[in-house]
Design a protein around this nucleic acid. Structure first.
Lengths: 210, 210
DNA sequence: AAGTCAATAACCCTTTTGGGTTATATCAAA
DNA sequence: TTTGATATAACCCAAAAGGGTTATTGACTT
Protein backbone atom coordinates (compact mmCIF):
# COMPACT_ATOMS: atom_id res chain seq x y z
CA UNK A 1 0.00 0.00 0.00
CA UNK A 2 1.25 3.47 -0.90
CA UNK A 3 0.08 6.08 1.60
CA UNK A 4 -0.71 9.38 -0.07
CA UNK A 5 -1.54 12.90 1.12
CA UNK A 6 -2.96 15.73 -0.96
CA UNK A 7 -2.52 19.50 -0.62
CA UNK A 8 -4.82 21.33 -3.01
CA UNK A 9 -6.94 24.40 -2.43
CA UNK A 10 -9.34 23.83 -5.30
CA UNK A 11 -11.97 21.69 -3.59
CA UNK A 12 -13.45 20.37 -6.83
CA UNK A 13 -10.05 19.14 -7.95
CA UNK A 14 -8.96 17.76 -4.62
CA UNK A 15 -12.15 15.71 -4.36
CA UNK A 16 -11.54 14.35 -7.81
CA UNK A 17 -7.99 13.41 -6.93
CA UNK A 18 -9.08 11.90 -3.65
CA UNK A 19 -11.65 9.73 -5.36
CA UNK A 20 -9.16 8.70 -7.96
CA UNK A 21 -6.61 7.68 -5.36
CA UNK A 22 -9.09 5.84 -3.17
CA UNK A 23 -10.25 3.79 -6.09
CA UNK A 24 -6.78 2.87 -7.24
CA UNK A 25 -5.40 -0.45 -6.17
CA UNK A 26 -2.51 -0.30 -3.67
CA UNK A 27 -3.21 3.38 -2.98
CA UNK A 28 -4.40 4.70 0.36
CA UNK A 29 -5.41 8.31 0.93
CA UNK A 30 -4.21 9.38 4.39
CA UNK A 31 -4.81 13.11 4.23
CA UNK A 32 -6.32 15.85 2.09
CA UNK A 33 -5.77 19.53 2.92
CA UNK A 34 -6.32 22.89 1.29
CA UNK A 35 -3.16 24.53 2.50
CA UNK A 36 0.18 23.84 4.16
CA UNK A 37 -0.47 25.52 7.46
CA UNK A 38 -0.20 22.28 9.41
CA UNK A 39 1.72 20.36 6.81
CA UNK A 40 4.52 19.29 9.10
CA UNK A 41 2.21 18.11 11.84
CA UNK A 42 -0.02 16.28 9.39
CA UNK A 43 3.02 14.59 7.94
CA UNK A 44 4.31 13.61 11.34
CA UNK A 45 1.00 11.97 12.15
CA UNK A 46 0.23 10.25 8.90
CA UNK A 47 3.64 9.39 7.53
CA UNK A 48 2.56 9.30 3.91
CA UNK A 49 4.87 7.80 1.34
CA UNK A 50 3.95 10.31 -1.33
CA UNK A 51 2.58 13.84 -1.14
CA UNK A 52 0.81 15.55 -4.02
CA UNK A 53 1.34 19.26 -3.57
CA UNK A 54 -0.21 22.25 -5.28
CA UNK A 55 1.85 25.46 -5.23
CA UNK A 56 -0.55 28.36 -5.10
CA UNK A 57 -2.45 27.91 -1.86
CA UNK A 58 -3.69 30.47 0.65
CA UNK A 59 -1.68 31.30 3.78
CA UNK A 60 1.28 28.98 3.16
CA UNK A 61 2.35 28.06 -0.32
CA UNK A 62 3.30 24.61 -1.46
CA UNK A 63 6.88 25.77 -1.80
CA UNK A 64 7.08 26.53 1.87
CA UNK A 65 5.47 23.18 2.49
CA UNK A 66 8.00 21.27 0.43
CA UNK A 67 10.88 23.01 2.09
CA UNK A 68 9.58 22.24 5.50
CA UNK A 69 8.54 18.66 4.97
CA UNK A 70 11.71 17.76 3.13
CA UNK A 71 13.85 19.29 5.88
CA UNK A 72 12.35 16.79 8.26
CA UNK A 73 11.38 13.83 6.15
CA UNK A 74 13.75 13.66 3.21
CA UNK A 75 12.54 10.15 2.44
CA UNK A 76 8.97 11.24 1.75
CA UNK A 77 8.39 11.80 -1.95
CA UNK A 78 6.71 15.01 -3.01
CA UNK A 79 5.14 15.59 -6.40
CA UNK A 80 4.30 19.15 -7.34
CA UNK A 81 0.97 19.32 -9.11
CA UNK A 82 0.43 22.78 -10.46
CA UNK A 83 -0.51 25.02 -13.36
CA UNK A 84 2.82 26.86 -13.22
CA UNK A 85 5.15 26.00 -16.05
CA UNK A 86 7.50 28.94 -15.61
CA UNK A 87 11.09 28.66 -14.48
CA UNK A 88 10.71 30.48 -11.20
CA UNK A 89 8.48 28.10 -9.34
CA UNK A 90 9.91 25.05 -11.03
CA UNK A 91 13.49 25.56 -9.91
CA UNK A 92 12.49 26.82 -6.55
CA UNK A 93 10.50 23.66 -5.89
CA UNK A 94 13.18 21.36 -7.18
CA UNK A 95 15.84 23.06 -5.14
CA UNK A 96 13.68 22.72 -2.07
CA UNK A 97 13.55 19.02 -2.69
CA UNK A 98 10.48 18.19 -4.80
CA UNK A 99 10.77 14.77 -6.43
CA UNK A 100 8.36 15.23 -9.32
CA UNK A 101 6.63 18.02 -11.17
CA UNK A 102 3.40 17.31 -12.99
CA UNK A 103 1.35 20.02 -14.68
CA UNK A 104 -2.37 20.09 -14.03
CA UNK A 105 -3.07 20.14 -17.72
CA UNK A 106 -1.81 16.57 -17.86
CA UNK A 107 -4.44 13.89 -17.35
CA UNK A 108 -5.31 12.67 -13.87
CA UNK A 109 -4.17 9.22 -14.82
CA UNK A 110 -0.76 10.68 -15.53
CA UNK A 111 -0.70 11.80 -11.90
CA UNK A 112 -1.60 8.32 -10.70
CA UNK A 113 1.18 6.92 -12.82
CA UNK A 114 3.55 9.57 -11.46
CA UNK A 115 2.75 8.55 -7.90
CA UNK A 116 3.79 5.00 -8.67
CA UNK A 117 6.91 6.22 -10.42
CA UNK A 118 8.03 8.47 -7.61
CA UNK A 119 7.34 5.76 -5.06
CA UNK A 120 9.68 3.52 -7.02
CA UNK A 121 12.39 6.11 -6.85
CA UNK A 122 11.70 7.81 -10.18
CA UNK A 123 11.37 11.50 -10.94
CA UNK A 124 8.13 11.93 -12.87
CA UNK A 125 7.85 15.14 -14.84
CA UNK A 126 5.65 16.49 -17.57
CA UNK A 127 7.63 16.38 -20.83
CA UNK A 128 7.72 20.16 -21.07
CA UNK A 129 9.12 20.36 -17.54
CA UNK A 130 11.62 17.60 -18.11
CA UNK A 131 13.02 19.58 -21.00
CA UNK A 132 13.40 22.73 -18.95
CA UNK A 133 15.22 20.80 -16.30
CA UNK A 134 17.57 19.23 -18.78
CA UNK A 135 18.31 22.58 -20.36
CA UNK A 136 19.04 24.15 -17.04
CA UNK A 137 21.20 21.23 -16.07
CA UNK A 138 23.31 21.63 -19.17
CA UNK A 139 23.64 25.31 -18.59
CA UNK A 140 24.61 24.77 -15.01
CA UNK A 141 27.18 22.09 -15.62
CA UNK A 142 28.94 24.27 -18.17
CA UNK A 143 29.17 27.15 -15.72
CA UNK A 144 30.59 24.92 -13.11
CA UNK A 145 28.66 25.36 -9.88
CA UNK A 146 28.54 28.68 -8.07
CA UNK A 147 30.27 31.05 -10.45
CA UNK A 148 30.28 34.28 -8.46
CA UNK A 149 32.13 37.25 -9.85
CA UNK A 150 35.02 38.76 -7.95
CA UNK A 151 32.86 41.67 -6.88
CA UNK A 152 30.06 39.42 -5.70
CA UNK A 153 32.46 37.41 -3.58
CA UNK A 154 33.82 40.61 -2.14
CA UNK A 155 30.39 41.92 -1.23
CA UNK A 156 29.41 38.57 0.23
CA UNK A 157 32.40 38.48 2.50
CA UNK A 158 31.56 41.89 3.88
CA UNK A 159 28.07 40.63 4.52
CA UNK A 160 29.49 37.79 6.56
CA UNK A 161 31.52 40.29 8.55
CA UNK A 162 28.37 42.03 9.66
CA UNK A 163 28.47 45.03 7.33
CA UNK A 164 25.08 46.40 6.31
CA UNK A 165 24.41 47.25 2.67
CA UNK A 166 25.06 50.86 3.49
CA UNK A 167 28.39 50.14 5.14
CA UNK A 168 29.47 48.00 2.22
CA UNK A 169 28.59 50.75 -0.22
CA UNK A 170 30.73 53.24 1.68
CA UNK A 171 33.46 50.65 1.97
CA UNK A 172 33.60 49.92 -1.75
CA UNK A 173 32.69 53.44 -2.74
CA UNK A 174 29.66 52.40 -4.80
CA UNK A 175 25.97 53.05 -4.33
CA UNK A 176 23.77 51.04 -1.99
CA UNK A 177 21.71 50.03 -5.01
CA UNK A 178 24.69 48.39 -6.59
CA UNK A 179 25.47 46.52 -3.43
CA UNK A 180 21.89 45.36 -3.43
CA UNK A 181 22.25 44.29 -7.06
CA UNK A 182 25.34 42.21 -6.37
CA UNK A 183 23.68 40.56 -3.43
CA UNK A 184 20.54 39.79 -5.39
CA UNK A 185 22.59 38.20 -8.14
CA UNK A 186 24.52 36.23 -5.58
CA UNK A 187 21.34 34.90 -4.01
CA UNK A 188 20.16 33.71 -7.40
CA UNK A 189 23.41 31.98 -8.15
CA UNK A 190 23.53 30.28 -4.77
CA UNK A 191 19.83 29.42 -4.85
CA UNK A 192 19.22 31.05 -1.51
CA UNK A 193 16.87 33.79 -0.39
CA UNK A 194 18.47 35.62 2.46
CA UNK A 195 21.74 36.73 3.92
CA UNK A 196 22.21 34.17 6.67
CA UNK A 197 21.57 31.29 4.28
CA UNK A 198 23.91 32.75 1.68
CA UNK A 199 26.70 33.14 4.20
CA UNK A 200 26.21 29.60 5.48
CA UNK A 201 26.37 28.18 1.98
CA UNK A 202 29.32 30.33 1.03
CA UNK A 203 31.38 29.28 4.03
CA UNK A 204 30.48 25.63 3.72
CA UNK A 205 31.33 25.53 0.05
CA UNK A 206 34.52 27.49 0.49
CA UNK A 207 33.45 30.54 -1.49
CA UNK A 208 34.47 32.70 1.41
CA UNK A 209 37.10 31.92 4.01
CA UNK A 210 36.10 29.86 6.98
CA UNK B 1 57.88 60.39 15.82
CA UNK B 2 54.39 59.10 16.56
CA UNK B 3 51.95 60.08 13.82
CA UNK B 4 48.51 60.87 15.22
CA UNK B 5 45.06 61.55 13.75
CA UNK B 6 42.05 63.00 15.56
CA UNK B 7 38.33 62.43 14.98
CA UNK B 8 36.28 64.79 17.12
CA UNK B 9 33.20 66.80 16.23
CA UNK B 10 33.53 69.36 18.97
CA UNK B 11 35.73 71.95 17.29
CA UNK B 12 36.77 73.62 20.52
CA UNK B 13 38.00 70.31 21.89
CA UNK B 14 39.63 69.10 18.72
CA UNK B 15 41.62 72.33 18.44
CA UNK B 16 42.75 71.95 21.99
CA UNK B 17 43.84 68.37 21.38
CA UNK B 18 45.54 69.33 18.15
CA UNK B 19 47.52 72.06 19.86
CA UNK B 20 48.45 69.72 22.65
CA UNK B 21 49.71 67.08 20.27
CA UNK B 22 51.63 69.50 18.09
CA UNK B 23 53.44 70.84 21.07
CA UNK B 24 54.36 67.47 22.47
CA UNK B 25 57.77 66.12 21.71
CA UNK B 26 57.88 63.12 19.37
CA UNK B 27 54.24 63.66 18.39
CA UNK B 28 53.12 64.65 14.90
CA UNK B 29 49.53 65.53 14.03
CA UNK B 30 48.74 64.15 10.58
CA UNK B 31 44.98 64.64 10.45
CA UNK B 32 42.07 66.19 12.30
CA UNK B 33 38.47 65.49 11.27
CA UNK B 34 34.99 66.04 12.65
CA UNK B 35 33.52 62.76 11.51
CA UNK B 36 34.40 59.34 10.06
CA UNK B 37 32.92 59.80 6.62
CA UNK B 38 36.31 59.52 4.92
CA UNK B 39 38.09 57.77 7.75
CA UNK B 40 39.37 54.89 5.68
CA UNK B 41 40.68 57.11 2.92
CA UNK B 42 42.30 59.50 5.36
CA UNK B 43 43.96 56.59 7.08
CA UNK B 44 45.20 55.14 3.82
CA UNK B 45 46.82 58.45 2.94
CA UNK B 46 48.29 59.43 6.26
CA UNK B 47 49.13 56.12 7.87
CA UNK B 48 48.93 57.40 11.42
CA UNK B 49 50.33 55.27 14.22
CA UNK B 50 47.60 56.25 16.65
CA UNK B 51 44.07 57.52 16.16
CA UNK B 52 42.11 59.40 18.81
CA UNK B 53 38.46 58.74 18.14
CA UNK B 54 35.32 60.29 19.56
CA UNK B 55 32.17 58.13 19.39
CA UNK B 56 29.23 60.46 18.94
CA UNK B 57 29.88 62.20 15.65
CA UNK B 58 27.46 63.25 12.89
CA UNK B 59 26.91 61.04 9.84
CA UNK B 60 29.23 58.19 10.79
CA UNK B 61 29.93 57.31 14.36
CA UNK B 62 33.31 56.52 15.78
CA UNK B 63 32.23 52.94 16.24
CA UNK B 64 31.71 52.49 12.55
CA UNK B 65 35.06 54.19 12.05
CA UNK B 66 36.90 51.84 14.38
CA UNK B 67 35.35 48.80 12.76
CA UNK B 68 36.31 49.95 9.32
CA UNK B 69 39.81 51.14 10.05
CA UNK B 70 40.67 48.08 12.12
CA UNK B 71 39.37 45.77 9.38
CA UNK B 72 41.98 47.20 7.07
CA UNK B 73 44.75 48.35 9.34
CA UNK B 74 44.78 46.15 12.41
CA UNK B 75 48.21 47.47 13.34
CA UNK B 76 47.01 51.05 13.78
CA UNK B 77 46.18 51.82 17.40
CA UNK B 78 42.87 53.47 18.15
CA UNK B 79 42.02 55.19 21.40
CA UNK B 80 38.37 55.96 22.06
CA UNK B 81 38.01 59.38 23.63
CA UNK B 82 34.45 59.92 24.71
CA UNK B 83 32.00 60.92 27.40
CA UNK B 84 30.25 57.54 27.31
CA UNK B 85 30.98 55.38 30.29
CA UNK B 86 28.13 52.91 29.78
CA UNK B 87 28.60 49.27 28.89
CA UNK B 88 26.97 49.43 25.47
CA UNK B 89 29.44 51.64 23.66
CA UNK B 90 32.39 50.38 25.63
CA UNK B 91 32.07 46.75 24.69
CA UNK B 92 31.01 47.51 21.19
CA UNK B 93 34.13 49.57 20.63
CA UNK B 94 36.43 47.05 22.23
CA UNK B 95 34.94 44.22 20.23
CA UNK B 96 35.43 46.24 17.07
CA UNK B 97 39.07 46.51 17.92
CA UNK B 98 39.66 49.70 19.91
CA UNK B 99 42.96 49.60 21.78
CA UNK B 100 42.23 52.15 24.49
CA UNK B 101 39.29 53.88 26.07
CA UNK B 102 39.80 57.22 27.75
CA UNK B 103 36.94 59.29 29.14
CA UNK B 104 36.81 62.95 28.29
CA UNK B 105 36.50 63.85 31.93
CA UNK B 106 40.08 62.71 32.38
CA UNK B 107 42.71 65.37 31.90
CA UNK B 108 44.15 66.09 28.49
CA UNK B 109 47.56 65.12 29.72
CA UNK B 110 46.13 61.70 30.50
CA UNK B 111 45.28 61.41 26.83
CA UNK B 112 48.81 62.35 25.83
CA UNK B 113 50.12 59.73 28.17
CA UNK B 114 47.63 57.21 26.76
CA UNK B 115 48.86 57.83 23.24
CA UNK B 116 52.39 56.95 24.32
CA UNK B 117 51.13 53.90 26.13
CA UNK B 118 49.10 52.56 23.25
CA UNK B 119 51.96 53.17 20.86
CA UNK B 120 54.13 51.04 23.11
CA UNK B 121 51.60 48.22 22.90
CA UNK B 122 49.66 49.07 26.05
CA UNK B 123 45.92 49.35 26.54
CA UNK B 124 45.28 52.66 28.25
CA UNK B 125 41.95 52.95 29.99
CA UNK B 126 40.37 55.26 32.52
CA UNK B 127 40.29 53.46 35.88
CA UNK B 128 36.51 53.26 35.86
CA UNK B 129 36.59 51.68 32.41
CA UNK B 130 39.37 49.29 33.30
CA UNK B 131 37.22 48.00 36.11
CA UNK B 132 34.25 47.40 33.89
CA UNK B 133 36.41 45.51 31.47
CA UNK B 134 37.87 43.35 34.20
CA UNK B 135 34.42 42.59 35.56
CA UNK B 136 33.15 41.60 32.20
CA UNK B 137 36.21 39.53 31.57
CA UNK B 138 35.66 37.58 34.75
CA UNK B 139 32.03 37.07 33.94
CA UNK B 140 32.90 35.91 30.48
CA UNK B 141 35.63 33.50 31.47
CA UNK B 142 33.38 31.79 33.98
CA UNK B 143 30.70 31.28 31.37
CA UNK B 144 33.22 29.90 28.99
CA UNK B 145 32.87 31.65 25.66
CA UNK B 146 29.69 31.43 23.61
CA UNK B 147 27.29 29.70 25.94
CA UNK B 148 24.17 29.50 23.79
CA UNK B 149 21.21 27.57 25.12
CA UNK B 150 19.92 24.55 23.27
CA UNK B 151 16.98 26.53 21.99
CA UNK B 152 19.18 29.36 20.78
CA UNK B 153 21.38 26.96 18.87
CA UNK B 154 18.31 25.42 17.33
CA UNK B 155 16.92 28.75 16.22
CA UNK B 156 20.29 29.81 14.88
CA UNK B 157 20.61 26.72 12.75
CA UNK B 158 17.23 27.36 11.18
CA UNK B 159 18.39 30.87 10.44
CA UNK B 160 21.39 29.47 8.60
CA UNK B 161 19.07 27.26 6.59
CA UNK B 162 17.25 30.29 5.24
CA UNK B 163 14.14 30.17 7.44
CA UNK B 164 12.58 33.54 8.23
CA UNK B 165 11.54 34.36 11.79
CA UNK B 166 8.00 33.50 10.85
CA UNK B 167 8.93 30.14 9.40
CA UNK B 168 10.98 29.29 12.45
CA UNK B 169 8.09 30.18 14.71
CA UNK B 170 5.78 27.84 12.80
CA UNK B 171 8.47 25.21 12.76
CA UNK B 172 9.02 25.25 16.51
CA UNK B 173 5.45 26.07 17.30
CA UNK B 174 6.26 29.23 19.26
CA UNK B 175 5.49 32.89 18.58
CA UNK B 176 7.54 35.05 16.25
CA UNK B 177 8.32 37.27 19.22
CA UNK B 178 9.98 34.43 21.00
CA UNK B 179 12.04 33.60 17.97
CA UNK B 180 13.06 37.23 17.87
CA UNK B 181 13.95 37.06 21.54
CA UNK B 182 16.18 34.02 21.11
CA UNK B 183 17.92 35.62 18.17
CA UNK B 184 18.46 38.88 20.01
CA UNK B 185 20.00 37.00 22.92
CA UNK B 186 22.16 35.04 20.54
CA UNK B 187 23.46 38.19 18.90
CA UNK B 188 24.43 39.57 22.27
CA UNK B 189 26.24 36.42 23.26
CA UNK B 190 28.10 36.20 19.98
CA UNK B 191 28.83 39.94 19.93
CA UNK B 192 27.35 40.34 16.49
CA UNK B 193 24.59 42.54 15.14
CA UNK B 194 22.96 40.74 12.28
CA UNK B 195 22.03 37.36 10.92
CA UNK B 196 24.74 36.86 8.33
CA UNK B 197 27.46 37.73 10.80
CA UNK B 198 25.98 35.45 13.44
CA UNK B 199 25.82 32.54 11.05
CA UNK B 200 29.38 33.10 9.91
CA UNK B 201 30.63 33.17 13.48
CA UNK B 202 28.55 30.16 14.47
CA UNK B 203 29.83 28.02 11.63
CA UNK B 204 33.42 29.08 12.05
CA UNK B 205 33.37 28.41 15.77
CA UNK B 206 31.57 25.12 15.40
CA UNK B 207 28.39 26.15 17.17
CA UNK B 208 26.40 24.92 14.21
CA UNK B 209 27.39 22.21 11.79
CA UNK B 210 29.55 23.14 8.86
C1' DA C 1 12.22 30.78 50.58
C1' DA C 2 14.54 33.71 47.61
C1' DG C 3 17.04 34.04 43.53
C1' DT C 4 18.64 32.93 38.87
C1' DC C 5 18.04 31.10 34.30
C1' DA C 6 15.52 29.57 30.36
C1' DA C 7 11.68 29.93 27.57
C1' DT C 8 7.83 32.16 26.46
C1' DA C 9 5.25 36.45 24.81
C1' DA C 10 3.90 41.22 23.65
C1' DC C 11 4.63 46.10 22.45
C1' DC C 12 7.16 50.06 20.69
C1' DC C 13 9.80 51.81 16.80
C1' DT C 14 13.10 52.49 12.74
C1' DT C 15 16.08 50.61 9.48
C1' DT C 16 17.27 47.00 6.47
C1' DT C 17 16.28 43.52 3.31
C1' DG C 18 14.87 41.53 -0.64
C1' DG C 19 11.89 41.01 -4.88
C1' DG C 20 10.73 43.08 -9.28
C1' DT C 21 11.89 46.20 -13.10
C1' DT C 22 14.83 48.97 -16.12
C1' DA C 23 18.97 51.22 -17.89
C1' DT C 24 23.76 52.56 -18.56
C1' DA C 25 28.90 52.01 -19.94
C1' DT C 26 32.52 48.85 -20.60
C1' DC C 27 35.10 45.07 -21.98
C1' DA C 28 35.79 40.63 -23.91
C1' DA C 29 34.51 36.92 -26.78
C1' DA C 30 32.24 34.80 -30.59
C1' DT D 1 30.37 43.47 -35.03
C1' DT D 2 26.91 41.94 -32.40
C1' DT D 3 26.32 39.56 -28.37
C1' DG D 4 27.17 38.54 -23.51
C1' DA D 5 28.88 39.32 -19.09
C1' DT D 6 30.00 42.64 -15.55
C1' DA D 7 29.57 46.56 -12.80
C1' DT D 8 27.12 50.34 -12.08
C1' DA D 9 22.65 52.83 -10.67
C1' DA D 10 17.77 54.04 -9.72
C1' DC D 11 12.90 53.19 -8.52
C1' DC D 12 8.84 50.93 -6.16
C1' DC D 13 7.19 48.45 -2.41
C1' DA D 14 6.20 45.02 1.15
C1' DA D 15 8.16 42.28 4.47
C1' DA D 16 11.59 41.20 7.60
C1' DA D 17 14.89 42.28 10.85
C1' DG D 18 16.66 44.28 14.85
C1' DG D 19 16.85 47.36 19.12
C1' DG D 20 14.53 48.62 23.46
C1' DT D 21 11.32 47.51 27.24
C1' DT D 22 8.57 44.54 30.23
C1' DA D 23 6.35 40.39 32.07
C1' DT D 24 5.10 35.54 33.24
C1' DT D 25 6.08 30.86 33.97
C1' DG D 26 8.59 26.71 35.50
C1' DA D 27 12.85 24.58 36.88
C1' DC D 28 16.85 24.35 39.31
C1' DT D 29 20.09 26.47 42.93
C1' DT D 30 21.32 28.64 46.65
Amino acid sequence: MIKIAIYEDNIRLSQLLALLIETTEDFELVGCYENCVNALQNTRNERPHVIVMDIDMPQRSGIEGVFEIKSHFPEIKIIMHTVFDGNEHLFECLSKGADGYILKKDSSTRLIQAIKEVNDGGAPMSPFIANKVLQSFRKQSTQDEYKLTEREREVLSYLAKGFSYRMISIELNISVETVRRHIKNTYQKLHVQCGPEAVAKAIRSGIIAS
